[in-house]
């Protein structure tokens, strides 16, 4: 009796706030904290108005459940059949990561060069092979640096001539450099993950 009157008092105090109906709502959604849910259960036991309100909400939930449709049979099979083949599937079916092919090509080239040039080495077979690979890499490096140097030198010379001709050329060049930077930054921005992009734009993935 004492417990019931305490619950009634609690119920009266609780209903003075506007949140009590929200508790009922959240309880039916399974979103009420455990402590609040047990408090609510006690109040429902003694308060007919709260019970009536809850019945109305339950009826609403049931009515909305009746408005559901069944998924047509074979739906998931249709989805699976319609899936495209993606790059990660191609990769995993080949059993090789994406960088494997270029790496293999480099190794084959290096090995081929070593075998071709290494046959002429005077030292022991394996030492000759190693020396030849080093020589080959050194030669490649030197050739590459030379070409790069020549290219940049030529480029620098061209620019110098262009800028010296008029101030307008200098302005145009500055504009071109600025545009390239803007383009670069916008390309970096576009590489956001799809989830983030889909959550911030209305058209992505839709």
């Amino acid at each position: 009796m004492k417990i019931e009157s305490a619950a009634l008092e609690q119920s009266a105090a609780w209903k003075q706030s506007t949140a009590w109906k929200q508790w009922l709502d959240q309880d039916l959604d399974g979103e009420l904290e455990a402590a609040e849910a047990s408090q609510l259960a006690k109040i429902l036991e003694v308060d007919p108005e709260a019970r009536a309100e809850r019945r109305g909400l339950v009826a609403l939930h049931q009515a909305m459940d009746e408005d559901r449709i069944a998924v047509r049979p074979g739906f998931s099979d249709q989805v699976m059949e319609a899936l495209p083949q993606t790059w990660w599937e191609r990769e995993s079916s080949a059993g090789l990561p994406r960088w494997a092919l270029p790496m293999a090509m480099m190794l084959v080239t290096a090995l081929g060069a070593a075998l071709t040039l290494g046959s002429a080495a005077e030292v022991g077979r394996f030492a000759g092979l190693g020396t030849t690979i080093l020589d080959f890499m050194q030669a490649t490096f030197l050739a590459g640096s030379g070409m790069l140097f020549a290219t940049w030198r030529g480029f620098g010379f061209g620019l110098e001539t262009l800028i010296a001709e008029s101030g307008l050329n200098l302005l145009a060049l500055a504009g071109a450099v600025l545009s390239l930077n803007v383009l670069f930054v916008s390309m970096l921005r576009r590489r956001r993950p799809a989830a983030q992009a889909a959550e911030t734009t209305g058209s992505e993935d839709s």
Binding site: W88, A195, D205
Partner: peptide, 13 residues
Amino acid sequence: VFVKIYGALDRFD
């Protein structure tokens, strides 16, 4: 939607 999601799974964060 499922097909689209599948194609974009590698970009799922």
